[in-house]
Design a protein around this nucleic acid. Sequence first.
RNA 1: GCCGCCAUCGUCUAGCCCGGUCCAGGACGCCAGGUUUUCAUCCUGGAAAUCAGGGGUUCGAAUCCCCUUGGCGGUACCA
Length: 508
Amino acid sequence: MEKPRVRFAPSPTGYLHVGGLRTALYNYLFAKKNGGIFYLRIEDTDRKRYVEGSVEKLIHSLDWAGLKYDEGVYQTAEIKDDKIKVIGSPNYPGIIEVGNFGPYIQSERLDLYKKYAQELVEKGHAYYCFCEPERLEKLREEQTAQKQAPMYDRYCLRNLDQEEINKNLKSNCSHTIRLRVPRDERIEFEDMIRGKVSIDSNTIDDQVLMKSDGFPTYHLASVVDDHLMGTTHVIRGEEWLPSTPKHILLYRAFSWDVPEFAHLPLLLNPDKTKLSKRQGDVAVEDYVKNGYLKEAIINFVALLGWHPGEGETQEIFSLDELEKIFDIKKVHKAGAVFDLKKLDWINAQYIKKLSLEELLEKTRPFFEQKDFYIDATADKKTDEYLKKVLRIEHERLSKLSEVGESNKFFFQNILYDKNLLRWKEMADEDLESSLEKSRSVLENISDWNLDTLTRSLMEAAGDKKGDFLWPLRAALTGEQKSPSPMEVAWVLGKKESVKRIKEALGKI
RNA sequence: GCCGCCAUCGUCUAGCCCGGUCCAGGACGCCAGGUUUUCAUCCUGGAAAUCAGGGGUUCGAAUCCCCUUGGCGGUACCA
């Protein structure tokens, strides 16, 4: 395969969707695997749906995920080669466009679309339509009532002569340009994932190409851009499959080479409908906020709809590894349910790989949001202390956001419940002597580290471990469930541990 | 309604192209047991898919063909 050029072309309607992330990832991997170019284009042809700040968010999320693109839209970029064109976006302050196929923002390419739409009209592949939305609406209603597929009836194609069209145009009559879809033809193409796809041209509507506001629709804009920007492979979501024949018709009308297509299976809600906001988080930034690592999200999303194939049982893959083994032919056809449980597990795997320093760095923002942390005394906010907590929690964490949540006793005073201290049917005297013993053992430890603590306490416990360890643990934590007493004591330090034992003793 | 795509454990999936080695393998989750008290980690084991249903081809089908059903997507001057 010669050097492919692929793109990710989101619309700035708010944020990066996890489905979009996967589309971007597959494009990225395809480019990397085949030594090609991956570029980012912004498809902002619908002004009604534009959300302020989304372009920045899109760029930021892609950057966060580590999906570096070679051309397109950036906030900051390092340009080493002075042959590469760089412009500041006229429409988006602070955004720059880097690459020789720009502009990469569709709202900045309006003249281009207009020119190509006119070319289509001249060649007879498209025509002006002056129908008002009300007429179209009524037509659609009638057709639906008669159980027909709603389709434009070609009123303007059939009834308007050139003179009338010119007159309308001259008087600035609101109009669109529609694709003239040929009749009685079978449009076929070979999808890289699905194989041969075939559709009867009679079922294809005369799609609007240019809207009355002077903006192109997706169909025209993406075809023109994909051609002009040298796109060799169009890898996008399955929702585009039904409109691909229209795009093929467009390429043909222009006499342009048709790129290869790959339509990715959808990401699904647990009820198998298309993944939606209503049923959970869909924005990549939400997952970040919830304590997921980028490596985990990438890894998880890569495996939704793709698998390296026979004999491979590895489940944890880094981006580097994915770049080497990705094969678009192995992408599935069926949609995949987005299963949070598996994501959590993958996330836990990546958390375990983190060093204590890295873990501290990544969890600090989460600590700082927690009440128990905010209210804690200064000695419990030091890096040293936090690292001790983290050392204990490391293997218990499946999300960064859970940090400290189940071990708040590390940061705050606890409430003692006498009955919690008691192991099984223990008598008061035994409880008391057990805790006294703990106190003296701890007080006599001079070398306060986990090994010494473990050795001393296990030795003191003898063969009645429950009688000794349970009351100690309960006194230290005030909880039914917690890490072991040696771990807790180690984090808390001698002074605090002894203090808590004394307080527990006072309750008996 | 019309058009299109899809269909293996609850979920992600291997196997399907090149029929037998698959009374279907792995992972997540779940259950049980073990690992220096509880939790977590880790280890071991288990339940879990008549391969959507039916018909065909074949000595033999999860794998090839046809039909049915179901699900999803599209059907906009949204992408």
